[in-house]
Structure formats: C-alpha cells, structure tokens
Amino acid sequence: MENEGRRKFLGVCVAGATAAAAVAAGYPVFRYLAPRSGQGGAAKLVIPVGELKEGDAKFFEFAGSSAVLIKTQSGELVALSAVCTHLGCIVQWVKEKQQFLCPCHGGQFSTDGTVLGGPPPRPLAKIPLTVTEGNITIG
C-alpha cells in the first residue's frame, strides 16, 4: 500500500520530468526552424531620383552593411552591395573609368557588379530597387 502510493507519486514526478525534458529538447528545434524576428528584410530606403547624376554613385548603409547606388551613363539605376567579395573591404567608385575598385587588393567590378579583374571570387551582390514618382526605393 505504501509502495503503491510512493510509486504513484514517483510516476507523476517521472511523467512531469519527461514532459519537461521533451519541451526542453523540442524548444531548440523550434527555435532553429522558426524564422527569426526582424529577418523579414531590412527597412526600405528611399532616395530621390534627382540626387544622382548620370555616371555618379551614392554610398549608403543598407541592412547593416555598405551599399551603393549608381546611375550609369546610359541612365540605368543599379543598387549593389559595396562590400568586396574578396576580403570584405568597401569598394570605391572610379568615375573616370565607370567602375568600382577595391582599395585593399585591387579588385575591379563593372557597374552591374561583374568582376572585371583582381582576386574577387564573386560579383557584387545586387539589391533590388524600384522607381516610382521620382523616388528610388531600395530593398
């Protein structure tokens, strides 16, 4: 009788502890699978079209990283990550050549981000943009 009461009590304890263990083991799995809050994309950035002349570039911060908006000499607008894909330095705009140059190891990129020379292994990442009512919305 005494054993039965003890067994019942221990059974409740084991069941409770097992349930708690299951929750504790499942929580990291849920955390891993669930999308992180605030990862739905960086805040959009709006730049007036008039701020940029043909052949010019404008650098700005986007999603915690350096980015650049250029207006090519043909008037096309392109937004790119300004982080060199070689070792992470911030590229510079060489207006005379209409291309980007990485000051660290001389990586060169075209206006659409394509690697033109030097050690970078990949093109500069493109950032989507839309133009509406005289404003460029980046992101």
Binding site: R6, R7, L10, G11, C13, V14, A17, T18, A20, A21, A24
Partner: peptide, 13 residues
C-alpha cells in the same frame, strides 16, 4: 542536472 534527477526518479521507481 535534470537528467540526473530523472535517473534518480527512475531508480527509486
């Protein structure tokens, strides 16, 4: 610690 407790409970049971 929790696993040790669980093992102890099983042992007692």
């Amino acid at each position: 610690g929790f696993m040790v407790l669980l093992a102890l409970l099983f042992h007692l049971m």
